[in-house]
Design a binder for these strands. Sequence first.
DNA 1: CTGTATCCCAGCGGATACTG
DNA 2: CAGTATCCGCTGGGATACAG
Lengths: 167, 167
Amino acid sequence: MNDFFRLAPPLSDRDSWTAADWCPMERALDLIGTRSAMTLLREVFYGAARFDDLARRAGVTPAVASQRLRQLVDSGLLERRPYQVPGQRTRYEYAVTERGLEVFPIIAALTRLGDRLPRESEKMVALSHAGCGERVVTEVRCAAGHAVTPADTVVSILQPAPDAQEG
Amino acid sequence: MNDFFRLAPPLSDRDSWTAADWCPMERALDLIGTRSAMTLLREVFYGAARFDDLARRAGVTPAVASQRLRQLVDSGLLERRPYQVPGQRTRYEYAVTERGLEVFPIIAALTRLGDRLPRESEKMVALSHAGCGERVVTEVRCAAGHAVTPADTVVSILQPAPDAQEG
DNA sequence: CTGTATCCCAGCGGATACTG
DNA sequence: CAGTATCCGCTGGGATACAG
């Protein structure tokens, strides 16, 4: 934390702060709040790269895949890279960007939730650590490394101090 | 892992396995895949409990809050508890269940993503560890405690062995 | 305060058909 | 293979009004 920000009045005083300008979760949902965005990103993390594979595996039509992938590229979560196999025409692949890596914990956490939900079929998809085979889980911690539960968190509205000096 | 399951053919052979029966993430999205579900759950984790507060803070209309909260209660992520302040009429509060705790990492991961996205306003909402004030982050690990990156994961389709004997 | 019911609209996403 | 365009149905969700 730098001292450019200071605490605003406690949260209980506010009404809705749903505005994407303030709430980080709202901004995240603006980018990946649709089902097609989530499933397409899942498939990218699971190894798919080409348009056709992505659409088919994510279970969306080409039209939906086209529009959604464009948005994901525009928002900087994915990038569309040309690559050339010698003797073949140029192809494109969709790959996760540095920023897009932040989506992985979300995928993992959703998968974990679903993993613990009752299911009809006994057949199931599992996400495991390649190194040891154990199931993938997510942990919530703070930047200092302490384990954090919902009760351990504080939500605050930060705003620029009126007299703040940049740099 | 028990030996009731065995590995199915590799993922590259499959088409879409979007079915909620198989894919845990799809099951998760069936429960919390709407924006109102996510924002309402966020507000529950942030401390709101009463219907009115939840609807207002989440920025949804009472009609939406009513329908969505019912679904969240039905799915076992929230519970609706009566509580009585002596001398007042019975009120109800919405609280996270044991199962609902699995949603917290998703909220935290979404918040983390949004936190690193460019924003218009300098004012912002932050989620911090009450103990030390550091920002909340999510880590992806395996059940054995190893740090896991997207490249470190394997996705497999598990299915009951035909000759499996229960218990 | 804690919801429900009704009307309405925008957006997501499926189906189909068509280009480079 | 890698998309784009069009049509269209469904649902999520806002606005408003009403009930216990």
